[in-house]
């Protein structure tokens, strides 16, 4: 037992790349699906998007943001060769990979940067014209070239809020132009929930199908607890089981956004406690 970490690399001031050996997951993963991992005996179950899942090597790659205790542990305590307690999946429903025409993937946070590559790779293989838009805050957040979706994108954009790399602005600005040029048949997106809400409003008037990750706080990830419940077209759905990709126009975004910080107090407390320990040990 145990799932070995086979590679790890820093991506930016806040994000990193990690690869684990999880052949049971790699063999059956499809774009749209996620995994759940546990760092150690005392760890929680955290969902992660998949950057790639290689059937031949049995390895699964992901991008991770140093958010809080779990992800700090992954960064500071777990090195290549160490093992994770649990890697389960693939979970959730795959997206439909078929010919749509011009497919956009828009990403403005760590999970989505991974999904962008994974999704467009499959979409390109299915004969679509693929457009990737990676948005970052500033140049310190931008990933090294080899981790961007360029190889799987027919058209490729980077934006930063301050214009320090690529275009100044956000994927919403690029997308608006693409839509006005009539270049968009379907939009996939993930990342910041606030942007996804705006994205839904942007594409709604044009009637462009918009499918986005609805990231909610999860426990089991298999439909057993309802932690990840959302209102979708007025009905209760579980993001882990019925999603995590949903038509953005039917999602009640305000509740989704609020529920993402349900445990903010506890998380902040645990984060500070952990950082204090790191400081004590002289790690940081």
């Amino acid at each position: 037992m145990g799932y070995k970490i086979t590679a790890k690399e820093n991506l930016s001031v806040i994000d990193f790349f990690m690869e684990v050996e999880a052949p049971h997951v790699a063999r059956s993963w499809k774009p749209g699906q996620f995994i759940v991992l546990i760092v150690d005996e005392k760890g929680e179950r955290v969902p992660m998007s998949v950057y790639y899942a290689d059937k031949d090597t049995g390895r699964v790659g992901m991008f991770i943001r140093r958010h809080g205790v779990t992800t700090f542990k992954l960064w500071y305590e777990k090195q290549v060769g160490d093992e994770l307690l649990s890697v389960a999946g693939p979970l959730g429903k795959p997206i439909e990979v078929k010919h749509y025409g011009n497919v956009v993937f828009a990403a403005d946070a760590v999970c989505a940067q991974a999904e962008c590559y994974a999704t467009l790779k499959a979409m390109k293989e299915a004969g679509n014209y693929t457009i990737a838009i990676h948005s970052f805050e500033t140049k310190d957040h931008v990933y090294p070239e080899k981790f961007l979706s360029k190889p799987v994108a027919d058209e490729f954009y980077i934006t930063t809020e301050d214009g320090s790399v690529g275009r100044k602005g956000h994927y919403l600005d690029v997308l608006k132009e693409l839509i006005e040029q009539d270049k968009v048949d379907i939009v996939f997106a993930g990342g910041k929930l606030g942007s996804l809400k705006k994205l839904a409003e942007l594409t709604r008037p044009y009637g462009i199908p918009t499918i986005t990750t609805v990231r909610q706080i999860m426990v089991d990830g298999t439909g057993m607890c309802g932690s990840c419940r959302i209102l979708y077209d007025g009905e209760i759905k579980f993001a882990c089981r019925d999603g995590p990709m949903f038509y953005a126009h039917k999602v009640d975004w305000d509740d989704v956004i609020r529920r993402d910080s349900r445990f903010a107090e506890q998380q902040a407390f645990a984060r500070e406690r952990y950082l204090a320990k790191l400081r004590e040990k002289g790690v940081i």
Binding site: V219, D220, M224, C225, G226, S227, I230, L231, D255, R259
Partner: peptide, 24 residues
């Protein structure tokens, strides 16, 4: 193992748990 929830107003409010979420 799938919890039944009440589809009544306010079901998405914070600190409303299914027993399964709470116990898990």
């Amino acid at each position: 193992g799938t919890p039944k929830l009440l589809n009544i107003p306010g079901i998405l409010l914070d600190r409303i748990y299914s027993a399964n979420e709470f116990l898990t």
